[in-house]
Design a protein around this nucleic acid. Structure first.
Lengths: 196, 196
DNA sequence: AGACTAGTAGAACGATCGCTCTAGTCAAGT
DNA sequence: ACTTGACTAGAGCGATCGTTCTACTAGTCT
């Protein structure tokens, strides 16, 4: 049995620290020095695990956290009595998270995506795949409760866009008022579509 | 009559260039050197007009373009036969703009807001005011056609969030498919609310 | 024991960051 | 003619950027 704790721990700490920093200051606002400070890892360690440098590390952060968010949100939505109630729970949870974390960005993927979409095609594409995965998950949920495929796709796009846009409004205003209003409207729209 | 062309021209060119650069590479991704290159102005000129440096310039960009966007979108929405058709026009116009401009960010305010919300409170607040102004404009439009104030506020929040979130999806995927789907759903939601 | 490998440590590189500062141009006012 | 003030020009500041590199530690093989 080898001593894996230290090395795997470092790699994980670097990824976690980078994610956290992206949520506060975005991609271009986060330096490798920041990452060494927060993670406790040295430059050498970062380049040992990510020979591709900052971009390779960012790619990993987007993929890992993107997948994690997808699973997490789907779990919340599915654990309610029905998808409509689950969606309302997800919005309420996100609103609570915003308040509890001083309005740090709940979604680094959307933040990084918007920042690098025109300057880094590799990262742009990874973000696109992650977002498409979220949309796909929600389409699946809606189809299961009887929605038509094409209508479900439009609704899922609305859900994702509303959440991302709601984060922008919440972060700018340091208030969840608009975000919660958006959530209420989106839940209404989904409820109407599903119950027809 | 003084020769205002040169000086006012430079100031304007700096603001325009900065706005354009923010749309492509965001706030932290845009350097003063970039701005001098695109605008043709020198560092001295930039600091002559904006003694507060990059942040003062950014503040001006946010305020000026934010106000301009608000007026522009309101004009589009109002120039249609009714607000619902006008909103559809606005979404269609934005989609066309995305395609025509290689998916450059149509809204630098939202982009910059998300980027600096936790690191620059002055800029965060300006962005918040601009976004609140947009929301207010749309509330006014909805109230005029008979919507109730509180419902109008929720709908206006949905409109703004959907547009901002839709931009993230469009830029990441380099496609307006999701954005247009979001637009269709939002137009539906507004139509239902107004025609009751 | 000795070789090998994974991981750590951090100095240092050239480039670039936002910004300051001095020198200069040019038109208007007296 | 001379001063003044608005504006331009760009060299240069210290700090920081992402990255490279060598040296070092320590656990695992044969």
């Amino acid at each position: 049995m080898s001593e894996v704790v230290s090395s795997a721990g470092t790699r994980e700490r670097v990824v976690t620290a980078t994610l956290e920093l992206f949520r506060r200051q975005g991609y271009n606002g986060t330096s490798l020095k920041d990452i060494t400070r927060v993670s406790g890892a040295t430059t050498g360690s970062i380049y040992h695990f990510f020979p591709g440098g900052k971009d390779a590390l960012t790619a990993e952060v987007l993929r890992e956290s993107g997948h994690g968010y997808g699973e997490f949100v789907e779990l919340i939505v599915r654990s309610a009595s029905d998808p409509v109630a689950g969606l309302a729970d997800a919005f309420a949870g996100a609103a609570q998270l915003l308040v509890d974390t001083d309005f740090i960005d709940p979604c680094p993927i959307g933040a990084v995506a918007r920042e690098v979409a025109n300057t880094n095609d590799e990262l742009r594409q990874i973000a696109a795949e992650v977002i498409a995965d979220w949309q796909r998950r929600f389409v699946g949920i809606l189809v299961e409760v009887g929605a038509e495929e094409s209508a479900a796709r439009r609704l899922a796009a609305l859900v994702v866009a509303s959440i991302e846009g709601g984060f922008v409004m919440a972060r700018a205003s340091r208030s969840v008022e608009a975000f919660s209003a958006v959530g209420a409207e989106v839940v209404d729209a989904v409820a109407r579509a599903v119950e027809l």
